[in-house]
């Protein structure tokens, strides 16, 4: 009998190969770069209006990027990423082939889940590196903005990781949707509804029950500059996300493959 780890390693290495030449891989790297480049250009040309005196240059840069990222870009980014990676399988009509291989069905599901989470983690890493580089280059281009003082940088890095963890539940939901249905419009529709509802309901007292709002809650925490790592939305996201991944698997494994 082969162990579960053997199956998972094999499957994961095959899934990684599947990403070769696809846009999904590039998007995980390019999306954060594009976002940071945009703010880099803004700070370069109009930095004097964008740096808030009370926050300092790094925290101001973090504030601008996180605000856009958590409220608008992240839901779309995750929807694109999950529907693109699972779309490879839908497009190739590959489910029947995968499930007729001598692999447990759970392996197929969880190796794909791990891959998507890996991509989001990878793009978080790129995001952190891009912020660091952008600030460092701004330090030379615009010495007047004060980027030479690296105060606030650790908070930015911690918040990036926290946002990744807060989005865990969103990845779980979108992953299940994109695996269950091949429709790209469904994933995008859910993402857009999530964006609008989060913005509208952001001041609602029960917002912490709404999974799509967790990255925004992390952002609010950043604004308060609270040093706590495992805040409420983080463990909620991890707990609910894990549950969604498991329920998603139970649903997918029962599906008849036609």
């Amino acid at each position: 009998m082969k162990s579960t780890t053997t199956y998972l390693t094999r499957s994961l290495s095959a899934e990684t190969l599947k990403l070769k030449n696809t846009f999904a891989l590039w998007m995980a790297i390019l999306a954060p770069c594009a976002l940071i480049s945009m703010f880099f250009l803004a700070f370069w040309s109009k930095g004097e209006h964008l740096v808030m005196k009370s926050l300092g240059p790094w925290t101001s840069f973090g504030f601008r990027t996180f605000a856009l990222y958590t409220q608008l870009l992240m839901p779309i980014f995750i929807a694109l990423l999950t529907s693109m990676t699972n779309g490879i399988e839908h497009k190739a009509n590959g489910w029947k082939h995968l499930y007729a291989l001598p692999l447990p069905k759970s392996t197929v599901y969880f190796s794909k889940a791990a891959l998507v989470l890996g991509l989001v983690a990878c793009s978080t890493l790129v995001f952190m590196l891009a912020i660091l580089s952008a600030g460092t280059v701004l330090r030379w281009l615009r010495p007047d903005l004060g980027f030479q003082n690296y105060e606030g940088i650790s908070m930015i890095l911690i918040t990036s990781v926290k946002i990744f963890l807060a989005s865990f539940v969103i990845v779980a939901i979108q992953f299940w949707l994109s695996m269950r249905w091949s429709s790209f419009a469904l994933s995008m529709g859910v993402a857009i509804v999530a964006i609008i509802t989060t913005v509208v309901a952001s001041r609602w007292e029960h917002i912490h029950y709404y999974p799509f709002a967790y990255p925004l809650m992390t952002f609010n925490g950043y604004m308060k500059q609270s040093g706590q790592f495992f805040t409420e939305e983080i463990w909620r996201s991890l707990a609910v996300g894990t549950a969604v991944f498991i329920l998603g698997y139970m649903d997918i494994s029962r599906k008849k493959i036609l």
Binding site: A14, L17, K20, I88
Partner: peptide
């Protein structure tokens, strides 16, 4: 997987099994 070569298509299933 149309975006991959014939060899890579085989390699993928080879890795899985």
């Amino acid at each position: 997987y149309r975006h991959l070569s014939g060899y890579d298509n085989l390699e993928m299933t080879r890795r899985m099994i």
